[in-house]
Design a protein around this nucleic acid. Structure first.
Lengths: 242, 242
DNA sequence: CGATCAGTTGAGAATGGTCAAATTCGGTGG
DNA sequence: CCACCGAATTTGACCATTCTCAACTGATCG
């Protein structure tokens, strides 16, 4: 039942063991496929939101723009992530989302999503659980920006991306595929692209991690975790809860 | 039915018009009163969470500690806020919460909370709405840390606190009561206490805002908003939705 | 073979941090 | 009432991290 063509089921399986009826309910949400070219907007800040999106393939990022044009990336989104949940309740999106790479996503009309949740409450719970974990990663990101030096910040962020991807089978302790350019990292970490470049060079020269050719390689996982103060409790998950 | 003794109902009233049965359901959640002295921990990071808390009076803050002892405050919590919702799903709290001033709070056992939600689904929706708004403020806070200068950061944060308190009737465009010490602001804004002090002095000398005697006074609201790039869309709420 | 975009490197400037020393202020005990 | 204590705030001097600007390299793609 589980296959990499259905990354959302794959992710939720960490939380609930889905019945075949539940698998079918999820499958019904995935009928309206859309594709977005790299750099295309998927959700616009301020937009009245009528649908959510399930990322099927590719990476996206959510961000806010400041009046003077700087941007702050709030999070990156990978296959299995659900976009636009918060704006269902707030009625309009408080941030924008754009495709980093070409993205395939399922567009889910809000009424269809709510119908799915009421027919299959365990799916609702599992999706809320995923949203809670996403929120925990945003909080950790906040700590990155507020209290970590540029080096620890970069190191911590790469470790966290790695840990998140590991959970969906797209990476391990040696590294992960990563389509991000340095300027995306800069916008996520509140640093200038130039400084990100210098920090990456230092981390590379110290034999800790390399960020090259769309590939992040952890060369000394332990020392890197140490430098970053990485304690991934907030991502831990001991297996299905329901 | 609405009275300042029940700040949660007051807040949720912005989202739903509560029936008297719903008021009673909420009242049943508020029977187990607890008090916390200033600086006492209310929730401990890593703690297996068995209950949530509704803040009845006083201010609290949620934060994370780094290995070297620095701390990053994630958010301040005022009467009407619900603490510990996320850890219901994650099973253990990913952050600590401590009382800033003496706090009175209602402890709500998770099963009681879930029972309330299933008996009164509109309350569940309204609480989720409040949680979504809290999350939006954390995101805005992330932007503060990532992309705003110290001055804009302090200005923006004070404006945001003011806007949040205005929504629950505890402030207006001229200012608000604020029990925070400068070092709390520093831990929230990722700045050193010394620098917070200097920035507050500059803002005061420029006639923009004063932060003294537990009182924040906006002396030039328009110019302050301009300096901060403050656009409070994410907090706007046009009246009851349900 | 330009053109463009990502990545690199250097030099100098700026923002914000650290350390240390007052000063103020609200209690508290005498 | 007054002296004293500790916590919070304020200020100065100096330092470090990170930014900005600018130039240059290298790859990719029509």
């Amino acid at each position: 039942m589980l296959n990499p063509e259905d990354p959302l089921s794959l992710k939720l399986a960490a939380f609930v063991t889905l019945s075949s009826a539940e698998h079918q309910a999820l499958a019904r949400l995935r009928r309206r496929r859309r594709t977005f070219a790299a750099k295309r907007e998927i959700i616009l800040e301020g937009q009245r939101s009528l649908s959510a999106f399930i990322v099927e393939s590719g990476w996206a990022c959510s961000f806010k723009l400041l009046p003077e044009g700087e941007r702050q990336i709030v999070d990156f989104h990978v296959p299995g992530d659900v976009l636009g949940l918060r704006s269902i309740l707030l009625r309009r999106s408080d941030h924008s989302v754009e495709a980093v790479t070409p993205v395939k996503a399922s567009e889910v009309l809000i009424p269809d999503l709510l119908a799915c949740f009421s027919q299959a409450p365990r799916i609702a719970t599992a999706v809320l659980w995923a949203a809670a974990r996403d929120e925990a990663t945003v909080v950790e990101h906040l700590v990155d920006l507020g209290r970590r030096s540029a080096e620890a910040r970069v190191a911590h962020y790469l470790l966290e991306l790695g840990a998140r991807l590991k959970l969906v089978g797209k990476g391990d302790d040696t590294g992960f595929g990563c389509p991000l350019k340095q300027h995306y990292l800069a916008d996520a970490l509140g640093l200038s692209p130039v400084h990100v470049n210098r920090v990456l060079r230092r981390l590379r020269e110290d034999g800790l991690v390399t960020f090259q050719n769309e590939l992040v390689s952890f060369n000394d996982f332990e020392r890197l975790k140490d430098l970053a103060g990485f304690i991934p409790d907030y991502l831990d998950q001991d297996g299905p809860l329901l």
